[in-house]
Design a protein around this nucleic acid. Structure first.
Lengths: 124, 124
DNA sequence: ATTATATGGAACCTTTTGGTTTCATGTCAA
DNA sequence: TTGACATGAAACCAAAAGGTTCCATATAAT
């Protein structure tokens, strides 16, 4: 929601496997802190801290319902990650397509593949 | 190259903005450690450590050429990230498409949007 | 042969991370 | 009203992260 400086960004938020698993759980349904904790071998307090980090990255939001705090997935910030990835996709998919071509046309373009491997086919 | 346990995975490797910038630099061309360092305000030793982490995640590889060590981008491991993202894309793109539909058909489906917001439109 | 360059590695430092335990508080249920 | 439950918050801890400086070694250039 906020547009100013966040302490944790999306890249940091998803760097931890526990947090990734929390996100996955929340794709199924909204869950309280205790419900989330029941899926992990660590303490409720530790999970609450992970939720705070995910929350700072706007990947989840929590609302108080009675004595529970219900957390909900907010996948939109992952779009930033997708955009970041798109830039690199062209590089590795290019390599894969050259490989695919090599497989489909055996014994034809070893040189082309090798040049790609050592990066001589980049501009500049 | 190695197929066994890695100390750092792709998610951790890209969590740091300096490392992301190193990757970006390496999309342009292969670079030595000193050349990479010249783009940052931190020490050569610090950059070398970042390169080791990127290397452990198989995102770069370095080869010794004379007294220099030349690093090269290896974008393929980012495919794992893409796969991970693909799972979440359906969620947020679904939300965006509902929103788009709402904008294009004003005053029609507030209920549908609200149900989506609280997660009732998921299977299971 | 000497000097400058490029890297490697060790030792050290501070902050952050990912956890814990303990205690306080608010809310639901009997 | 008395527990039981759900969370919040503080204090603490060990290890990892992200740096630094210093020194050693290999290679290049004069």
């Amino acid at each position: 929601m906020s547009a100013f400086q966040q302490k944790h960004d999306v890249f940091q938020a998803i760097a931890d496997s526990t947090r990734r698993e929390v996100l996955r759980l929340l794709t199924e349904k909204e869950l309280s802190i205790s419900e989330i904790t029941s899926h992990f071998p660590i303490s409720r307090t530790a999970i609450a801290k992970h939720l705070r980090i995910l929350s700072e990255a706007d990947l989840v939001s929590g609302r108080k319902v009675g004595r529970e705090k219900i957390y909900q997935l907010h996948p939109e910030p992952l779009a930033e990650l997708k955009q970041w990835l798109a830039f690199y996709e062209k590089f590795w998919e290019n390599k894969l397509s050259i490989l695919k071509h090599t497989v489909e046309n055996p014994g034809e373009n070893e040189l082309k593949l090798m040049k790609s491997e050592i990066g001589e086919d980049r501009e500049n």
